[in-house]
């Protein structure tokens, strides 16, 4: 009996050691979990605050904190959204943003793909030198172009136009796009291209049939970056748009009387961030890939 219990006692600690360390480990991780849950919530609060503020009825919005919506859901209404969707200035600003963002995403990708293909697979003198110059243009901050382009746009009639904004964003998107795509295209197996060339395919055909499909992953992450970049732009539109303004500028023009206009600012700001958020969630994988590829503008 005594010996039996002794063996049991000896065995139990041996057997339960993994279990107890597991419990200890889980207990040891509890603070980490709690901390991360806390931080995660903390990180969400500001955005939720904007959403709930935008839902407060106009009479409450300047007086009541957004958190009262949690305890009194009756305070929430879609009235503010209804109002701004019937506000012509805001709806046309949203459409302007859509056109600018689509144009300034598609155009630089087309132009950069063409150029990147030339830099990766066509032979011409000074190729590497020219590529270096293009990449070096990454250093030019947007601020360097604002003043001359402002005068140029006034002369050319591009001021306050959607094409004017698209061309500006396209040009400043090109160095990074060319850099990224050239580095991707150069990784395409040489044999594929040689085979196509020997079969007599033109360079343009090779580009459309071979390079573009194979380059799709890089093009996708580039497209997401460029779209978000342009959609979220403030400084370019603030400088070159007056009446044809995207949503950021439309909201910005209301910010002088921030508290007086909050019933317009809050829902408009929320709408302006819903679309990039949707793009981000839909294409998260490409976004992170692009980020890791080195996202410097």
């Amino acid at each position: 009996m005594a010996t039996a219990s002794a063996t049991v006692e000896r065995q139990v600690p041996e057997l339960s050691e993994p279990a107890s360390t597991r419990i200890l480990r889980i207990l040891g991780k509890t603070p980490v979990y709690l901390f991360l849950v806390f931080i995660g919530l903390l990180w969400l609060v500001p955005t939720i605050g904007l959403l709930f503020t935008s839902l407060l009825e106009p009479a409450e919005i300047g007086r009541t904190g957004w958190w009262h919506v949690i305890t009194q859901p009756s305070l929430a209404t879609l009235d503010n959204y209804n109002a701004i969707l019937h506000n012509h200035a805001i709806t046309s600003a949203i459409w302007t943003t859509v056109w600018i963002s689509l144009g300034a995403t598609i155009l630089p990708i087309v132009l950069a793909s063409l150029a990147a293909y030339a830099f990766a697979w066509l032979e011409f003198p000074g190729r590497d030198w020219l590529f270096l110059v293009v990449v070096a243009l990454l250093v030019v901050p947007i601020q360097m172009a604002l003043i001359p382009i402002f005068s140029l746009y006034n002369d050319l009639g591009l001021f306050d136009t959607i094409p004017g904004l698209i061309l500006f964003h396209t040009a400043f998107g090109l160095p990074f796009a060319i850099f990224l795509l050239r580095n991707f295209f150069i990784g395409i197996p040489r044999d594929l291209l040689e085979a196509a060339r020997i079969d007599g395919a033109s360079e343009f055909r090779i580009f459309v049939r071979l390079i573009l499909p194979l380059g799709l992953p890089a093009i996708a992450s580039l497209a997401i970056f460029q779209f978000l970049w342009v959609w979220n732009d403030l400084i370019v539109a603030l400088t070159f748009a007056r009446d044809t303004q995207p949503i950021t500028v439309a909201i910005f023009s209301q910010m002088r009387q921030f508290s007086a206009n909050i019933e317009l600012i809050a829902p408009a700001a929320f709408i302006s961030l819903v679309i990039p958020l949707a793009v981000f969630f839909a294409f998260q994988r490409y976004f992170v890939q692009g980020l890791l590829a080195g996202s410097v503008k």
Binding site: L36, W43, T47, G49, T53, L234
Partner: peptide, 23 residues
């Protein structure tokens, strides 16, 4: 957690400004 912390990256810095002006 990753999504919560990473989400502000997709928002414009301008919208982030509006958000924090409220905060």
């Amino acid at each position: 957690f990753k999504v919560a912390v990473f989400m502000p990256m997709a928002i414009s810095l301008f919208a982030a400004g509006v958000i924090w002006r409220l905060m």
